[in-house]
Design a binder for these strands. Structure first.
Lengths: 191, 191
DNA sequence: GTCTATACAAAGATAGAC
DNA sequence: GTCTATCTTTGTATAGAC
């Protein structure tokens, strides 16, 4: 692990705080304290709270995009394995009762967010759905998955369920809930 | 429609604002302006923001509870009809691109919320799941629904999907999405 | 029950020294 | 690149007149 620069540490801390408490509830002071700097220093790296929010979501989305591009193009994994990789961030988050998906957290306060930030969230959900459609098509073509209906419709249902499951499991302190949800989703695909 | 008193108008406005923008992002001033009073007047009715939040969620939950108690005990509707009534608030909200479920909105910023408010949210989700379990059992006993697995598991999946669907449809401006989700859920029950 | 006035803390943001 | 100091606005909340 390379020693991170301040810009990235700010992104890390901000992401973690949003996943735990949302965007509106956190302040430059909260972030600065966790990073170990003073609040005006943050503005040297990101000129406004909106810009910082956009940078966090942009990085989040691109990290997932890079991960799936790599998995889908470089390797020849069975669709079942790729699907497990798709599920893994949800499973990891669910073991930590503090956090949900970054964009799931932001979606709740959507209409309070700056316009630029909303666009990033929209993009994340659109991308998340597309990745899932690709996996479903792979699995259907390889006869690994057995499901009825259009991949787009099934993908939407699955994404909705994963996001809702994370959110509700945190609010109901049901630690095993996301795991059960994922098992059910897999079983609906014949796995 | 009876003319409402100020206490209830405050609850109405606060609920609407939370469903649109969340809890942390709204202020007494936002509420007061919409109600048409000054902000200290709110505190005459609710001593703190936390108390107001609790009152809003408590009323929300009790409204649904009363509705389902009434439907389940007074009438002898087929389970299919009762399920449609259960779905109807989600469908109504989805036609308004501004709002999501009150507790769905709050779930995103869960760890920023005062303890008392968190308890109310937990209770709403627990109750929502129980109502759905009851409907599923009714439908299964009457051979109206055909689904595999425990009603508790199916109910959890359905609630997660509904909540996630509302949230994501708002963030992706997909107005017809919740409608499609509900059709898919019904089809999975053999309807 | 609603208002004006005010207290006090915290927010986002800027200026300028180092 | 980070700091101290400061500005301005807004937040929750209280006191007390009407």
């Amino acid at each position: 692990m390379v020693k991170q620069n301040t810009s990235e540490r700010i992104l890390d801390v901000t992401q973690e705080l949003i996943q735990s408490r949302g965007y509106s509830a956190i302040s430059f002071n909260d972030i600065a304290e966790k990073v170990g700097i003073k609040k005006p220093s943050i503005m040297h790296h990101y000129p406004s709270k909106a810009a910082l929010g956009v940078a966090v979501v942009d990085r989040y989305r691109k990290t997932f995009a890079a991960m799936f591009d790599n998995i889908l193009s470089e390797h020849k994994l069975p669709a079942k394995k790729i699907l497990d990789i798709y599920f893994s961030p949800y499973l990891n988050l669910s073991e930590n009762k503090e956090k949900v998906c970054l964009c799931g957290a932001l979606a709740g306060e959507y209409r309070a967010l700056p316009e630029e930030l909303r666009g990033e969230i929209t993009r994340f959900f659109d991308d998340s759905k597309k990745w899932l459609v690709t996996i479903l098509e792979l699995g259907k073509d390889a006869a690994e998955f057995g499901f009825d209906g259009e991949p787009e419709v099934v993908a939407s249902l699955m994404l909705d369920t994963l996001q809702g499951s994370l959110m509700i499991s945190r609010a109901t302190s049901n630690k095993n809930h996301v795991h059960e949800t994922i098992e059910s989703l897999k079983s609906e695909l014949g796995l």
